[in-house]
Design a protein around this nucleic acid. Structure first.
Lengths: 207, 207
DNA sequence: TAACAAACATACTGTTCGGTATGTTAAAAC
DNA sequence: GTTTTAACATACCGAACAGTATGTTTGTTA
């Protein structure tokens, strides 16, 4: 009676604990024993649900990190509206929800990317898949803005999308390394200035 | 006769091997044994020159990574001239000299930052010191450009400097994760567009 | 309700790793 | 030229770690 079993819930509990551990310590420094300490489960359960630490890490990327991305960026970017405004809102939402974690531990995706993508092809492919979803969503939204007339038509949406992702990750990375909200704010302010510059300039003297 | 001793050279040989190992595998995955295999020296030598793996990593940042930064960015930025042009040249030089390594293994500073700065204060401080040198040099150069009239005066040089560093690191990070020269080129192209936008706009109709 | 399989728990193993203890050799100091 | 010390070399150690073998319990199915 004390212990009822639920495989899905157990799996999710393991994933959540692994996600936090990996986000805080990175993949190599993440300890299976410590993950289990933050869980009501044991070693047997973990290796019942995941064949290895590597596969556990893969699942964290696909299911959890991918979920954050979808909720905070992909879905908003699918809505109709000014893409620049949507991006600004997603940035604000991201910082509002995860700001403190981002400054303390960085972006989970970027952390793993820099640590793992050069030494494990599985990590690289999965992280890259998330980045490409992000870039594609941004690119499509910007193209939409170009068609509806809110975004300048002389920019390459796909390349700008890459740059936006790069800048966001760069800003968060610097802020983490400086443990500084001010760094994040400054960097984001300039990024927003850049984004505003992507808008169509109002035609002076016409109307 | 076969083996003559030179402490400085031995130390440098260890640092170089450690630098490559850490750049490729990250700090945690870097193996002392493997470092020594790429050296004519042995375990005793390494622990004679460095008290621990941690201190070895610190020295790599301070002496080697810091040296790359000084040579490629700090010194050029001290010269007189259009700062935007200097930045563009430094970017080109960086890619020309280290392009393939950057795409394969990423930026050594950013790699370590994302992997280590959240879990080791010593790493964070040393990496941050390098970033601040970089940002300060950019900021000062931009301010110089503002005074000599090549850079817009309505921008905050310090904040733009942060953004530039963030964008560069972001571009390299994405390129590494995508194993793609094209990604690096696209991202850099947009960054350059942004930099060109920092120049004073020529006064139309006057002269 | 018996049989079976999924969902765990527990105890253990093999390996890798950073670090150390100790021995040895070359170079400098006197 | 003897002494001393810096500069290594070699062999080894304890700990931490991912992973496994095996046992046990719960739920399901026939």
């Amino acid at each position: 009676m004390l212990k009822q079993r639920n495989a899905d819930q157990s799996r999710h509990e393991l994933l959540e604990a692994a996600s936090k551990e990996i986000h805080q310590f990175g993949f190599h420094a993440a300890s299976i024993s410590r993950i289990l300490e933050n869980t009501s489960l044991t070693r047997g359960a973990l290796y019942h649900h995941f064949p290895s630490k590597l596969e556990l890490g893969y699942a964290v990327i696909d299911e959890l990190f991918g979920g954050y991305l979808r909720q905070l960026w992909l879905e908003p970017l699918l809505k109709i509206g000014d893409p620049i405004e949507i991006i600004e809102n997603s940035l604000n939402d991201t910082y509002a929800i995860h700001g403190q974690e981002l400054i303390s531990y960085g972006c989970p995706l970027n952390n793993l990317s820099q640590e793992m993508s050069a030494i494990d092809e599985g990590f690289r492919e999965r992280i890259n898949a998330q980045y490409e979803k992000w870039q594609d969503a941004l690119s499509l939204a910007l193209q939409g803005g170009q068609e509806t007339g809110t975004v300048r038509k002389d920019i390459n949406a796909a390349e700008v999308a890459i740059f936006i992702v790069a800048s966001i990750e760069g800003c968060i990375g610097l802020a983490k390394n400086n443990k500084s909200q001010a760094t994040l704010d400054s960097c984001t302010r300039i990024l927003l200035d850049y984004l505003y510059g992507l808008r169509v300039v109002p035609q002076a003297g016409r109307s």
